[in-house]
Every structure is written in C-alpha cells, then in structure tokens.
Design a protein around this nucleic acid. Sequence first.
DNA 1: AAATGTTGCTAACACACGTTAGCTTAGTAT
DNA 2: ATACTAAGCTAACGTGTGTTAGCAACATTT
Lengths: 199, 199
Amino acid sequence: MARIKTEKNISRKDVIVTKAAILFREKGFKAASMRDLAEAVGVEAASLYNHIKSKTELLHVICFGVANRFMQKIDEIESEQFTALEKVEKLLRFHISEMINHYEEVYVSDREWKHLSDPYLSNFQNQRRIYRKRFAAIIEEGIRQDKIKKIDAPTAVLIMLHAISGIESWHRSTQKISAEALEENMITILVGGLTPQSS
Amino acid sequence: MARIKTEKNISRKDVIVTKAAILFREKGFKAASMRDLAEAVGVEAASLYNHIKSKTELLHVICFGVANRFMQKIDEIESEQFTALEKVEKLLRFHISEMINHYEEVYVSDREWKHLSDPYLSNFQNQRRIYRKRFAAIIEEGIRQDKIKKIDAPTAVLIMLHAISGIESWHRSTQKISAEALEENMITILVGGLTPQSS
DNA sequence: AAATGTTGCTAACACACGTTAGCTTAGTAT
DNA sequence: ATACTAAGCTAACGTGTGTTAGCAACATTT
C-alpha cells in the first residue's frame, strides 16, 4: 500500500494538484487521464477521490489560484504611487516571474481554462476581462501623460500578455539564457515598444 | 441521405478539414469528437471515413499546411534584398495577416500540434525549430549592423511569435478595432521594441 | 440501360475514460 | 488495547470515443 508522501504544511491534495498541473501542461487537460495522474502520484486512480471531488476541481483550483495572485498584484500596484510606465513595468516583471517560477500552473491557467464548466467558466472569463481592462487603463493613463506612445491600449495589453506566455518555449529550451537575462530582454523589448522616443 | 456540399475546386475532404479546424480551435483537438465534426459537416460520423483516414490525419493536414506556408514565406523573404529590419517587418506582417485571415488553421497549428503522433510530431517540431532559428538569424544580422538593439535574438523571436498569437483574443472580442489598425499597432509596438533609438 | 465507382447509412466493436461502492489497512487518539 | 478516522485497494459501472464492416443510394461513365 503506497501512501502519498507529504511534508509539513503540504496536504495530500496539494501534492495531487501540483502533479496535475504538470500533467495538464504536458498533455493538455482532456488528454491527461486520472489514471495518468494516479501513476504520477504513485497510487491507484480511485484513491485520488479520497482527496478531491473531481477532475474538474483540479482545474478550478489551478486556474483560480493563478487568477487570484494576479488580481492581488494589480490591486497592490494600482494603489501605489508610481508613474504609469513604472506600473506597467512592475506588472510585466510580475508576469514574467510568475511564468518562470510557477510555470506549470500559469501555463495551464492560460491554455486550459476553456475546459472549466459553467459557473466557474464565466467567472474566470469575467476576471480575465476585468484584469485586462485595468491593465489597459494604466497604459491609457500613460498615453494621456505623453509617457507612452499613442497606441491602442487593449492591443498593447494583448501583445504583452501573450508575449510573456512565450516563456513556455524558453522553459523547454535546452540552451537557455538565465532567467534574469530573459527578464531584462523582455522588459527591454516590451517597454521599449511603448516608449515614444523610438522612431 | 445528406451529401456534403462542394463548390468548384473544393473537395469534400477540404470541407471536412475546414470544419475540423473550426472545431479543434473552439474545443481543442482531444475534446472535439468525430461525432461533433460529423454534425458540423451534416453527415454521420462513419461517413467521414470515406474521405479521411483518421482524426489525426486532419491535424496533420492543418498543421503542415500552415507550417509550409510560413516556410515558403521565409524562403521568399530571405532571398530578397532588404535590410534586416525590413525583413523582420515583412515577416511580422505576414504572421499577422495569416493570423487574421486563416485564423482557425493557424491557431490550431499553434496550440494543438502536441497531439500529433510521432513521425509527424518530431518532423513538425524540427520545422518549427528551424524556422525560429532562421528568424533569429535575421535579427542577429540587424544587430551586427547596429540597426537593432543588442538583445537576445531567440528571446525576441519568441516574444514576437507569441505576441502575434494574441490576435486570438482580438478575433473573439466584440469591440474590435479594424484589422488594419490592429496590424499597425502591433508593428509599432513590436518593431519599436527592437529599434535602438528608444530610451 | 448497364456498369462502376463514389458517398452515404446503420450497427457494432473494442477500448479508455471519470467515477462509485465496498472493503482493507495504516495511523492517531482515547 | 480499543476505537475511530484517514487513505489506500480491487472491481465494476456507465458512457463516450475512434474506427470498421457491410449494405444502400446516388452520380457518372460506358
């Protein structure tokens, strides 16, 4: 009888969620089976149900865990006294570090949220829409103050968020540059693309 | 008995592939069933197999169709006499217009290629790797000529390709700006992020 | 009109999936 | 030691999946 190993302050459910994120990332939510997950955890499939309600619950936990962290961060940044451009940069750096350090969860939340079922699905989509609007509002503030190029703010948000999700490729790459170098390069290109001095 | 409607020069297989791309985009490859596809085409599931070999064949056709168009374009651009920055811009504009005009196929090729099976899978991954290296080489050429900022070229490629895949969100958005405006905004931000005058 | 290939249908297969029921064993508290 | 809960196991369920076999209807050529 194989027990799920736990350390202090880490419940068996947490272990399952973490392994699920890895699996969902590499195979996709639909293609990853509970039997796959069970094997990764070192247990029979049915045993998982002593700790979780359903496969979809795992997706809920992952997606909303990530979404909440981003919401909390934008709350924090909005309430502080920075220029619009500094706020954008701080937000970008947070996105980058989340993508680097919580790769699996962020990736899954980004790509697999479609498979949420409906009370959760529309909730998630709402949060996402609101987040992007708040991000766009910061950029528009910068435009009004002539600190950011006169561009379409929602488009800029869209570019940045997706650009950052490209870290996925970096993660799997064999010849990686360092995480710090990656972050600086991204900031250079993305913030550089916003500031008006250029061409 | 419901026949698949065809127009001139469009085979029944083409009709199926096109509908499959739409379905794979909105539900994901694994979640879209052959019965779903059959319904979309207006036929029974088994009848599809008079035109195609397997579900995976549909994914092959979609993915390699897209990949080949990009390969052909980069061949063309490399062989012409432009500055590195012009080449980058041309490539970006091609990506953008492909994403706008062949949304479903490009999106599926981008997100669902993982579900290819192995002779095709590694082939596809190879093509992708090569394409990105060639793109990066163009950027490095620009850096050597001091026309592009001293950044890590593979990172720049990664940012741009993923940024463009963000057009997905634009496509589903209700209050869209025009396709032309979208293209100009993206070029402004992305090319602006490369050129050295900024900050 | 006959013959032939094309395209569809129904029925069914084998299999993988998420999940439940019922039971056993391991750990914890009394 | 005893009782209780937590966590595992085996077996099995119902359902949905991709796909095949065999047959009927249509379209096209002879």
